[in-house]
Design a protein around this nucleic acid. Structure first.
Length: 441
RNA sequence: GCGGCGUUGGUGAAGUGGUUAACACGCUGGUUUGUGGCACCAGUAUGCAUGAGUUCGAUCCUCAUACGCCGCCCCA
């Protein structure tokens, strides 16, 4: 038996329906914010990720899927979405567009060569947004509130945004030095990992799981105290706008991003009660320049879809996902079967969700099958009745059944089945939050 | 990349170095030859992740491999 590769999953059944629902919500919200859908290749030149992310990090050295194609080209399966979008921005010279910022969103699979655990796959799905061409804190705030609102629209109201600022590179360098100065006397007391971090990535020391509850950690310097005037202003503005947008957030000085191209705002979305990471993002004003484009201020977000689906399944929050059908057509002999084929098609083309029997099973098992699909109505075909132009329609809830004319079938269903294939309803959300009068605070 | 634990039908699972691998759900058929969900009866793993080894004999012990889960590193 052939089995799926390590760290991959099959999404089927109910889970697949929830998955589709999540994507519909994402599409719908993105549309309202006027973000354009973008598709970039799943594999790119290895150099894109090596240069974009930074050649020395673990990420590149051991966690990407690298391969050579038959033309001896070095390719890499994308480990994240941003680099491809930025490459496209530069390659297609979108920076020449007078209408900056460019606002795009994506949704697709990413590949990371990691040891799989729960919520940690080798093939994972992410959606994300990128805004290229605005340095205004308003842009940061919009991206944060957009990501927050998608989760809210999905029914996750346990979400809180953790936000921090890394400042510009000056602020960050002075902070890094301050951290090293502060921890130097304690170096012998730190765990082995932190001793390594001290040289490689001092910012990571402050969120170490082993050391962080040691007494001297409380007084370690905080990055927010090292922001220069411009950086501080930017951060304050972002927070001010977030208040206006009614985003639930906390300032969290322990959020750091490993990569050098991040600056100013960084943020993560987490569930408040269980502290599960839903996604994260931030401002990356250096990346376009690193990838041979003109210096372009950008901000983005990426969130995991696997995790969202898992949460919704666990919390049974998929009331919008349909799990029933309108009618099941039952038959026994060949003449009836022909009617079943004909009527199934007719009903389906009239907009109803219809199932029937394909293995010539007994009537008894057809009833079971109809229940399995939660069929609202059962249409029982009987040769004698068909000769008189009649079919039996049984309401599977009330168990009432009646014989109706075949010609009347469509009208019968039009009358009895309410159109509850509801679209994602942004309007009701907006009305319940109609507090525009409060915006002057 | 490092460490720990796990893997038994379609599913949840019990179990033992020695004949027929429990129990439950599901599924199939029947009681009931065209109106179901209930009930009762019957059927449903020659096999216990894969490969090798130890043994008279292995699902059980040993080793390796694959996959899963948990932790570390890392987290784009």
């Amino acid at each position: 038996m052939i089995i799926k590769p390590k760290g991959t999953v099959d999404i089927t059944g109910k889970e697949a329906k929830v998955w589709k629902y999540v994507e519909e919500v994402i599409d719908s919200v993105m549309e309202k914010y006027n973000y354009n859908y973008i598709r970039t290749p799943i594999f790119e030149s290895s150099e894109l990720f090596h240069r974009g992310i930074g050649d020395s990090t673990d990420i590149v050295t051991k966690e990407t899927y690298d391969f050579k194609d038959r033309g001896d080209r070095n390719l890499t399966l994308r480990p994240e979405g941003t680099a491809g979008v930025v490459r496209s921005f530069v390659e297609n010279k979108m920076y020449g567009n007078a209408n900056l910022p460019i606002k795009v969103y994506y949704n697709g699979t990413m590949y990371r060569y990691e040891r799989p655990q729960k919520g940690r796959l080798r093939e994972l799905s992410q959606y994300g947004v990128e805004c290229l061409g605005s340095s205004d804190p308003m842009m940061d705030a919009e991206v944060i509130s957009l990501s927050f609102n998608i989760n809210k629209m999905l029914g996750l109201d346990d979400v809180v945004v953790h936000i921090n600022s890394l400042g510009d590179s000056d602020s960050r360098n002075s902070y890094r030095e301050a951290l090293k100065t502060y921890f130097k006397p304690y170096l012998d007391d730190l765990c082995d990992d932190c001793k390594e971090r001290f040289n490689k990535n001092p910012l990571r020391i402050i969120d170490c799981k082993i050391d962080s509850n040691k007494s001297y950690f409380k007084d370690a310097p905080k990055i927010l105290d090292f922001l220069n005037v411009e950086s501080k202003e930017h951060f304050d503005k972002v927070c001010e706008y977030l208040d206006l947008l009614e985003v639930k957030y906390v300032v969290d000085p322990y959020i750091v991003r490993g990569l050098d191209y991040y600056n100013h705002t960084v943020f993560e979305l987490k569930t408040e009660s269980t502290n599960l990471a839903l996604g994260g993002g931030g401002r990356y004003d250096k990346l376009v320049g690193n990838l041979d484009g003109p210096e372009t201020p950008c901000v983005g977000y990426a969130g995991g879809i696997d995790r969202l689906v898992e949460l919704l399944m666990n919390e049974k929050k998929f009331s919008n996902v349909r799990d029933d059908i309108d009618a099941f057509l039952m038959y026994v002999n060949e003449d009836e079967k022909k009617y079943a084929i004909y009527l199934a098609n007719l009903l389906r083309m009239s907009g109803f969700v219809v199932e029937t029997e394909y293995n010539n099973k007994s009537l008894k098992s057809q009833f079971k099958r109809a229940d399995y699909f939660n069929s609202k109505y059962l249409i029982i075909l009987n040769s004698n009745d068909l000769n008189d132009g009649l079919v039996t329609v049984k309401n599977n809830k009330t168990k009432e059944e009646e014989k109706i004319m075949i010609e009347y079938l469509i009208y019968y269903f039009d009358e009895h089945i309410s159109d509850d294939n509801q679209d994602v309803d942004l309007e009701s959300y907006c009305h319940s939050h109609d507090k525009r009068g409060d915006c002057n605070e």
